[in-house]
């Protein structure tokens, strides 16, 4: 499969009063065409900053200090703002978390859908209107001509998120970044929006990078999952492997903290402790203060990524032992 986005050893830092603090610490991943990659993790673990780094939309005090981002073979981190602007909304699009605030309240939906077309295409007025109607029906809004003339406050949350998706798809992007697209919606609408995104992904052959902290959403849409903790990728793998055989203690903790409706006696297991601050200095593995399996080694050295299977990697010393045990086992037999 064709690689769309390839991020290597990305480090994103923020200038603060305490000096430069890295929020994303050496993240590597890739997204293929027609594939959905879910980034999972607690709030504040660097998920959103990773996506904003890809978009080149970091806040004023943030910058990419190391690493490279290749999009369709082009290096994005070295591009000027003007060059990046040609990519944004054209072949990389983004959907935001809050459909309530992500639409401009003083303009009609039609005006806002035509905006990316104004920016990236040279379509005539009539063509733009046709395209806008086409987009709105594509995202499953009935009566698109009427919706065009409405203001955002006249639409429901689900409809607004559909409009946001329509705006993001206006120029047929090859990569769609969705930052918690369903968090602000209620559950029935969530399912509809996720189905819609899945369908559109298949229809248009986009790569989708979805940020979420909802394991239910992950199970629903992801092809591959990337679990982040405190700026590091701790585990990546195919969705089945992550759910059936989670390797990293943090992933296990995350999965154990998903409520189970069927089991009445089920008690939620929270991961003890809280996410470390950006400026907290932790030696070794950044998860060790909260890890139930922490060993002495974890406190001293940061673990590398251990390969568990072809596409499954885990950043935990536990797997070194597993690896060597298996190795020994094989050697004896």
């Amino acid at each position: 499969m064709e690689t769309l986005l390839d991020v290597n050893n990305l480090v994103t830092s923020f200038r603060t009063a305490d000096g430069k603090l890295p929020a994303v610490r050496g993240v590597s991943f890739s997204v293929n065409k027609g594939e959905t990659l879910c980034i999972v993790g607690e709030s504040g673990c660097g998920k959103s900053i990773t996506t904003l780094s890809v978009m080149g939309l970091l806040p004023d005090n943030g910058e990419i200090t190391e690493g490279s981002i290749y999009f369709q073979g082009e290096e994005l981190t070295k591009k000027s703002d003007d060059q990046m602007r040609k990519h944004r909304g054209n072949d990389i699009s983004m959907i935001f978390q809050e459909p309530m605030t992500a639409l401009n309240p003083v303009f009609t939906v039609g005006y806002q859908i035509k905006e990316p077309l104004n920016l990236h295409t040279k379509l005539g007025k009539k063509e733009k209107k046709i395209r806008a109607i086409e987009l709105l029906s594509q995202v499953g809004l009935s009566n698109p001509e009427k919706v065009l003339k409405k203001y955002p406050h006249e639409l429901s949350g689900g409809m607004r998120q559909r409009v946001m998706i329509a705006i993001a798809l206006a120029c047929n992007p090859s990569l769609l970044i969705a930052d918690e697209p369903t968090t602000a919606l209620d559950v029935t609408i969530q399912a509809q929006i996720l189905d819609l995104m899945d369908d559109l992904k298949d229809d248009l052959g986009m790569g989708v990078m979805m940020v979420t902290h909802d394991m239910g959403v992950v199970a629903e849409v992801a092809d591959r999952v990337m679990v982040m903790y405190a700026g590091h990728v701790v585990e990546t793998g195919k969705v089945e492997e992550i759910f059936k055989r989670p390797q990293h203690p943090y992933t296990k903790g995350l999965l154990a903290s998903v409520p189970n409706v069927d089991d009445e006696g089920h008690r939620l297991e929270a991961i003890p402790g809280s996410l470390p601050n950006l400026n907290e200095k932790i030696t070794g593995c950044r998860f060790h203060p909260r890890c139930p399996f922490a060993m002495d080694k974890c406190k001293v050295d940061a673990p590398p990524h251990f390969r568990i299977s072809d596409k499954h990697q885990s950043k935990c010393w536990l797997h070194e032992e597993v690896d060597s045990h298996e190795y020994q086992h094989k050697a004896y037999s």
């Binding site: 909304g89 309240p105 990316p116 705006i167």
Partner: peptide, 25 residues
């Protein structure tokens, strides 16, 4: 506001955002 970030994510220039999206508000 998030819609300004959303406009940036669509590739609008600062000038366009200022005049066409901030000023009317």
């Amino acid at each position: 506001q998030e819609y300004i970030l959303a406009m940036k994510s669509l590739g609008a220039s600062n000038f366009r955002i200022l005049v066409k999206h901030v000023l009317p508000n």
